[in-house]
Simulated assay, not measured.
Amino acid sequence: MGILSWILFGLIAGAVAKVIMPGKDPGGIIVTIIIGILGGLLGGWIGTSFFGSDGVSGFNLASFIWAVIGSLILLILYRLIFHRSRS
Rank of each mutant, 00 (worst) to 15 (best):
M1E: 06
M1N: 01
G2H: 11
G2A: 12
I3L: 15
L4H: 03
L4I: 10
S5I: 13
S5P: 04
W6V: 07
I7V: 15
L8G: 14
F9A: 04
G10M: 05
G10W: 05
G10I: 10
L11M: 15
I12K: 00
I12W: 01
I12F: 05
A13T: 02
G14I: 10
A15E: 12
A15P: 02
A15N: 08
V16S: 08
A17M: 03
K18S: 11
V19M: 12
V19S: 06
V19Y: 14
I20S: 02
I20D: 01
M21E: 10
K24W: 13
K24M: 06
K24G: 08
K24P: 05
D25H: 14
P26S: 12
G27T: 15
G27K: 08
G27C: 10
G27R: 07
G28H: 12
G28T: 13
G28V: 13
I29P: 01
I29Q: 03
I30L: 15
I30W: 12
V31C: 11
V31R: 14
V31H: 11
T32M: 11
I33S: 11
I35T: 14
I35K: 01
G36F: 10
G36N: 09
G36E: 11
I37C: 10
I37Y: 07
L38G: 11
L38M: 15
G39L: 06
G39E: 06
G39V: 09
G40E: 05
G40C: 06
L41D: 01
L41N: 01
L41F: 11
L42R: 00
G44I: 03
G44L: 03
G44N: 04
W45K: 00
T48S: 05
T48N: 04
T48F: 09
S49N: 01
F50V: 01
F51T: 00
F51E: 00
F51P: 00
G52Q: 04
G52I: 06
S53V: 03
S53K: 02
D54F: 01
G55R: 00
V56R: 00
V56H: 00
V56C: 00
G58A: 12
F59D: 04
A62E: 08
A62F: 04
F64E: 02
F64D: 02
F64A: 12
I65N: 01
W66F: 14
A67E: 03
A67Y: 07
I69E: 02
I69S: 08
I69M: 06
I69D: 03
G70N: 08
G70A: 09
S71D: 07
S71C: 13
L72F: 09
I73C: 08
I73W: 06
L74E: 09
L75E: 10
L75V: 12
I76D: 06
L77N: 11
L77F: 15
Y78Q: 07
Y78D: 07
Y78N: 11
R79Q: 07
I81F: 15
I81N: 08
F82V: 15
F82G: 06
F82Q: 14
F82E: 14
F82S: 13
H83M: 09
H83I: 09
H83T: 14
R84W: 10
R84V: 08
S85K: 15
S85I: 15
S85Q: 14
R86N: 08
R86F: 13
R86I: 14
S87G: 15
